[in-house]
């Protein structure tokens, strides 16, 4: 099984990418794993009928159907006609959004959501491109600021805060 399937325009590197079949197989394997975990947990707690269904009864039944469905998907995946899931250049674009977003979530814990949002915006906009530097700065300052006013001050909804907010006494 090759991970790359070259179709349509084999000469154009932009049109290459992971094959749909490979992704289908990986997904169905993950689903099978989840189904196994569900069954393990449900039978561990009791999935029988004790004057009515026990707490594991439904998850276990659904788990079996889920397992059967996932196995079927695995078989189906091998019969999938060759096609690509997405081209590498498309995936690169997705990664350009995913990367900064993951960074943002990592930073929420230590820095608080507002500072993290400022950094995220400042990183994201230049990577995606199409915005001038002053727009980038204005957006990355204004968005967290407006959120802060709306949530912390107006609606009294406490969001994660970090050292920066602590300096101002929040």
């Amino acid at each position: 099984m090759s991970l790359s399937a070259d179709i349509e325009q084999p000469d154009d590197p932009g049109a290459r990418g992971p094959s749909k079949r490979a992704v289908e197989i990986v997904v169905s394997l993950i689903l099978i794993g989840l189904a196994a975990a569900v069954l393990y947990d449900s039978y561990g707690r009791g999935a029988g009928w004790n004057g009515g269904p026990e707490s594991g009864f439904f998850p276990a039944r659904v788990g079996w159907i889920f397992l059967a469905g996932s196995l079927f998907l695995l078989v189906q995946a091998f019969r999938e006609p060759p096609a690509i899931f997405a081209t590498w250049s498309q995936l690169l674009m997705v990664a350009k959004v995913f990367g900064p977003l993951a960074l943002f979530v990592v930073l929420v814990e230590p820095l608080g959501i507002y500072a993290a949002a400022a950094i995220f915006t400042a990183v994201f906009m230049p990577i995606v491109g199409g915005a001038r530097w002053y727009t980038v700065i204005a957006t990355s300052v204004l968005v967290p600021l407006v959120c802060f006013v709306v949530f912390e001050i107006e609606f009294l909804v406490p969001l994660p805060k970090g050292p920066l907010e602590a300096m101002f006494g929040y």
């Binding site: 943002f104 995220f120 995606v128 199409g130 915005a131 727009t135 957006t139 959120c147 969001l159």
Partner: peptide, 19 residues
Amino acid sequence: PFAIVAPIILVVCAIGAYT
């Protein structure tokens, strides 16, 4: 432009998920 709206949407989504 997408470059401006997308980060705003994502930040608001994150705040929403948190709250």
